[in-house]
Amino acid sequence: MRVTNQMIMSNMIKNISRNAERLQKIIEYTESYKKINRPSDDPMGMIKVMDYRTTLSKIEQYSENIEQADFWLRFNESTLTGFYEVVAEAKRIAISQSSEMADAETRSINADEVESIIDQLISLANSKLGGRYIFGGYKTDTPPFSRDGNYQASYHGDDGKMNATVGEGVSLETNITGDEIFMGSAGGVNIFDVLQDLRDGLDSDDTNVISNQVSLLGDAMQQILVGNSEIGSKVNRLEIAENHLNNFEMDITNLLSETEDADIAKTIIELKAQQTVYETVLQTTAMISQLSLINFM
């Protein structure tokens, strides 16, 4: 085959630029630490990367939702614990004042005590977290409980249930409404009515009424305990979900890294090798381009 000067020259240029291109590609890997720097580098890989990132973003959000729900539920739990102790106090009063040892005078003093207990419980039932009333259902902006001059408590919230999304298609109720847990609207004891009856019984020195409230207050305490254990089991479920998400997150992060990250050790070795090749090409080019018959004439 006839070989002409232009053929030699254009081959040199092609070889140099092809090697420069390869070198450039490897340099890009080492700079970005990624082997997928644009969709065409690996279209299927790019789709996977986006999918993994979306999954990670969901996991992150579910974790955030869990954290919020956990915070909210634990606050509910501690408020109910406080409520339980105050009700227990009322029960102690009912027991002591229903005995023969009590008289009209002690009962009248204890009636005042029960009034302050009712106020204390209303204030607990009006607990706020982050500016939101926790026992008012969706009516988080107004105090859900109040009482009249007769210590008759009333509920102003609704039966709104809040749900936290803790996984794809998985949600968990995070609130207990005040009328349900304190007023027994879904079946149970109306704790505030019991206390009002206790107060009236003490005021009117009616032993029967007082002793009737003892067992009712026991039921009330049981009601709070059941509510609290429900919350506890939800907190447990959240922990399990959280653990699952953490494991899942680790798996996906590994998959993501395997798909898009460049193997640095391998890349650096490739970089060295490609550098050597490139230098060799430049050297041979310099040598070949000297060759001409003219030099020998």
Partner: peptide, 19 residues
């Protein structure tokens, strides 16, 4: 892709604290 994820997450944040 990232911005859509951020948008959906923003809606979840709102659902956690609607007020």
């Amino acid at each position: 892709n990232h911005l859509m994820n951020e948008f959906w997450n923003g809606l979840y944040d709102l659902s956690n604290n609607p007020e």
